[in-house]
Amino acid sequence: MLLEIDNITLLYGRIQALHGVSLNVGQGEVVALIGANGAGKTTIMRAISGIRPVASGKITFNGEDITKVRADLRVIRGISQSPEGRGVFPGMTVQENLDMGAYTRRDTKEIAADLERVYGLFPRLKERRKQAGGTMSGGEQQMLAVGRALMSRPKLLLLDEPSMGLAPLLIQQIFEIITEISKQGTTILVVEQNAQQALSRADRAYVMETGRIVKEGNGPALLDDPAVREAYLGAA
């Protein structure tokens, strides 16, 4: 397993946000994490990337215990995240934002190649290279956040709500690109409220409710699960 999360709990002030969550992501998989607002999906992402400390439990990445490893060092180990709300640096140009994605790397030539690869995935970004991140539309910012996360050449790509606030056509486009990234060999953990898209494209998926994992299974199977359909797909 590339990522193993073993029974983690996490506190926000006096509120317990995660109650013993365990999940894992295998090499090359696309794993989806779905659930309602406030279920704790984003919190898990923060715990994996090290922005928030866990109160107990263990996170193992690539065979190494990273529970106490600082966030920036986790990037060097191969975890990259497109955060909730995109986290585009508003005062930096598109190009600079992408350069920030490669902040931990020194291999200039390879970085240039990856930049071309990202521009290949998102031609729109190339057109807007010199534009400030803060002045772009929501969809463009989302592309930028995903592209930027790829710039560190991650072993594991964490995507937090890549479809949030996007028009249906753009959602379709973003998920196609996610599938493409996966085909190019990157392992992906994606958090989504758009369960339809996420489940149909994921190898496996977890369902969260109020800080706990309540269900897991392979993507298409969960898509057919009546309880999941009722709760997240708005159909009986």
């Binding site: 990337s49 090290g50 922005i51 600082r70 990259s80 955060p83 986290g87 640096f89 920030m100 994605g101």
Partner: peptide
């Protein structure tokens, strides 16, 4: 500049 604009995201970039 990254830390100034968004410290959490900067950490996610490996800063």
């Amino acid at each position: 500049r990254a830390v100034a604009q968004d410290p959490n995201t900067a950490a996610l970039m490996g800063v």
